[in-house]
C-alpha cells in the first residue's frame, strides 16, 4: 500500500471507516441527510414521523388496520395497476426518443428498435405492461365490487375508478396504432368503424338525418364522430398524429389528475375499506 506524502494512507482512511459499517457512513453523510429529511426509522416514534415527512410516503396513512393490507383481501391490484402506469410512463418516454409518429418513419423506427437498439426490451416491456395494466385494472374493479367497497362513503371514488378504467382502455387502444403495422392499422380501423354508426352524430348512424339543413346532410363521412376520432376519412397520417398526442400527452395527463383524486379520496373516505 503506497503512502502519499501527506501521511494519510489507505490504511488510515480504512481505519476511520472500520468503526462504522459503510451503510451507516452513507446515512450519516451531509448529502444523504439533505435528501432524506428523516433518519432511518427504527423506533415507533420515528416510524410515524417518517410517513409524515417524506413526500412519497405521505400518500399513505401512518397506521392502518391489519386486515386492510392483507394480500388475500386487497389482491394488491390497485397498487400494481398504479405501478404499471409508472412503468408505462418511464418506458414510454424512452420509446419517444426513438419513435417518430409519421407514416414514413413509424414502422421503420419500431423495426430499428427491435433490430438495432441495444437492450431492445423497451417495446416489449411497454406492450406487455400495457396488456397487464388492462388486466390488473379489471381485477381491481372485480375486487372492489366483490368486497362491496363502492358502498357509502366511497360511491364517488368508484365513479372516478370507472373513468380511470375507461381511460386505461383508451390509452391501450391509442397506443395500439403506433407501430403502424397491419395488426395496428386494422385493429384501429375495426374499432373506429363503430363510431360511424353513432346515433345522430355518425354518418351511418340512426337519426343522423335530424341534423340536416335545407335537405343538405350536416353529418357526412367528413364531419361525423368517426372523423373527429380519426382526423380523416380513413386511418392515415392525421390519425397517427392524433392518436400519438392522445396516447402520450392528453390521456396520461387526464389519468394523472384522476389518479391524484382517486388516491386522495381513498384517504378522505376513510382509508382501505373494511367491515364497518
Amino acid at each position: 500500500m503506497m503512502s502519499p506524502r501527506w501521511g494519510l494512507g489507505w490504511r488510515d482512511f480504512n481505519s476511520q471507516l472500520a468503526d462504522m459499517p459503510l451503510s451507516d457512513t452513507i446515512r450519516e453523510s451531509q448529502i444523504w441527510k439533505s435528501i432524506f429529511r428523516h433518519p432511518m426509522p427504527v423506533d415507533r416514534r420515528n416510524r410515524i414521523v417518517v410517513m409524515l415527512t417524506n413526500f412519497f410516503l405521505h400518500l399513505h396513512p401512518v397506521s392502518i388496520k391489519k386486515q386492510g393490507i392483507a394480500l388475500s383481501y386487497t389482491w394488491c391490484m390497485g397498487g400494481v395497476t398504479f405501478f404499471l402506469f409508472l412503468v408505462e410512463t418511464v418506458t414510454g418516454v424512452l420509446l419517444m426518443f426513438y419513435y417518430r409518429p409519421t407514416v414514413e418513419w413509424a414502422y421503420t423506427d419500431i423495426q430499428a428498435l427491435r433490430d438495432v437498439t441495444s437492450l431492445g426490451l423497451l417495446r416489449e416491456i411497454h406492450r406487455w405492461g400495457a396488456h397487464a395494466m388492462v388486466i390488473t385494472v379489471w381485477l381491481h374493479m372485480y375486487r372492489v365490487f366483490l368486497t362491496g367497497s363502492y358502498k357509502p362513503p366511497r360511491e364517488f371514488n368508484w365513479v372516478v375508478g370507472v373513468i380511470l378504467l375507461l381511460l386505461t382502455l383508451l390509452l391501450s387502444f391509442t397506443g395500439y396504432l403506433l407501430p403502424w403495422d397491419q395488426l395496428a392499422v386494422w385493429a384501429i380501423t375495426v374499432g373506429s368503424n363503430m363510431a360511424r354508426a353513432t346515433p345522430v352524430l355518425g354518418h351511418e348512424g340512426p337519426l343522423q338525418q335530424l341534423l340536416s339543413v335545407g335537405g343538405v346532410d350536416m353529418i357526412t363521412n367528413a364531419s361525423d364522430a368517426r372523423f373527429a376520432l380519426l382526423g380523416a376519412r380513413e386511418v392515415g397520417e392525421e390519425t397517427l398524429n392524433r392518436f400519438y398526442i392522445l396516447h402520450c400527452i392528453a390521456i396520461p395527463l387526464g389519468v394523472a389528475l384522476l389518479l391524484a383524486i382517486h388516491f386522495w379520496r381513498v384517504r378522505k373516505d376513510g382509508g382501505i375499506s373494511g367491515p364497518l
Binding site: R47, M51, P61, I64, Q67, G274
Partner: peptide
C-alpha cells in the same frame, strides 16, 4: 376481515 384488526404501522408493514 373484522378479526385480528389492531392498527399497525405503515412503515414497515405496508411500505
Amino acid at each position: 376481515e373484522a378479526l385480528d384488526n389492531e392498527k399497525i404501522l405503515v412503515w414497515p408493514d405496508l411500505v
